[in-house]
């Protein structure tokens, strides 16, 4: 059951690992918004996406994220890629201008559709990689603490922030335990003649049921024992608790945050300029080449 490699935390000691998780989440959101901004001139959007790609590769190098892991997780996206391509290419859109191949008077394939689907796939890859940088450089528990911190204002409206954070952290803590359990039950059922890999849909469904029911029963038993153990150690969600882990903001966070804000600010400025003043053609301005049609 060790094939769940995507975005798994790798215990290293890089700059990115040391940045405060709250800060990392904020920067991730800023960068994601920047990636999503689309400009009027397609070459500008593409050029900026390229800039993001280079930045991302630098970030992954700094964070020592395993590129192989990323490719593995992207490999499973091929179905989505084909799906998007088919949808964009074959469904007509009145805003498309540049004909690639004309079937008849009413139906044609446009270059724009290739650009659109390619751009969406590129965005997806960027987002997935960014999220992967976050999850592989931040302990799941630290992420929970960060979410709890962001949700703190909700305490005012009696939203059970602490309880949710505690539930989340216990769920994370039990993922490996339950994976082991799944493995064990699968082996136990296989030794009793259950085949998980062959047979028709109905047969397979039955096989999965024989896995899920024991897994649920054991999870419920575990939760019962766990709640006893928590109570025996004096846990009371309504009472005040102190904290062993403390999130601290350091100089690294200031650098990282400035970096994130600079990119976000820059892109946002270009975006507003593009939409309100005049269309920007970066290729034209930087290289003096007109690639627009």
């Amino acid at each position: 059951m060790n094939n769940v490699t995507f975005g798994r935390y790798s215990p290293l000691n890089t700059f990115t690992h040391k940045v405060d998780p709250r800060n990392k989440i904020l920067i991730l959101i800023l960068l994601m918004v920047s990636i999503f901004l689309q400009f009027h001139v397609w070459s500008t959007t593409l050029l900026l996406s390229g800039v993001f790609l280079i930045l991302l590769i630098c970030l992954m190098l700094i964070s020592k994220v395993n590129f192989l892991d990323l490719f593995k997780s992207l490999k499973s996206m091929w179905f989505l890629v084909i799906f998007l391509l088919v949808i964009y290419v074959f469904i007509p859109n009145p805003t498309y201008k540049f004909v690639c191949y004309r079937f008849n008077d009413h139906y044609a394939i446009y270059w724009d559709s290739f650009y659109q689907s390619g751009y969406i796939i590129l965005r997806l890859i960027l987002m997935i990689s960014l999220t992967m940088v976050l999850t592989s450089t931040t302990k799941p528990m630290d992420l929970t603490y960060a979410f709890e911190w962001y949700m703190t204002p909700l305490k005012v409206i009696r939203f059970p922030v602490h309880e949710i954070a505690m539930t989340l952290s216990i769920a994370l803590r039990f993922i490996p335990t339950l994976l082991d359990e799944t493995d064990r039950i699968m082996k136990a059922q296989a030794s009793r003649g259950v085949d998980f890999n062959r047979g028709g849909l109905f047969k397979r469904f039955k096989a999965v049921i024989s896995l899920i029911i024991p897994l649920f029963v054991s999870a419920i038993q575990r939760s019962e024992e766990l709640s006893d153990a928590m109570e025996a150690r004096g846990y009371n969600p309504r009472e005040k608790r102190t904290r062993y882990r403390k999130l601290t903001f350091s100089w690294r966070d200031i650098i990282a945050l400035l970096f994130g804000l600079a990119i976000f600010g820059g892109i946002l400025y270009l975006f507003i300029y593009d939409h309100n003043v005049e269309e920007i053609d970066l290729f034209m301005q930087i290289f003096g080449i007109n690639v627009g049609f």
């Binding site: 928590m230 004096g234 062993y244």
Partner: peptide, 15 residues
């Protein structure tokens, strides 16, 4: 309960 050994020992102390 905790994510690591130290967090687990800390759980009771936090309570």
């Amino acid at each position: 309960i905790g994510a690591t050994v130290e967090d687990d020992i800390a759980f009771g102390l936090e309570n």
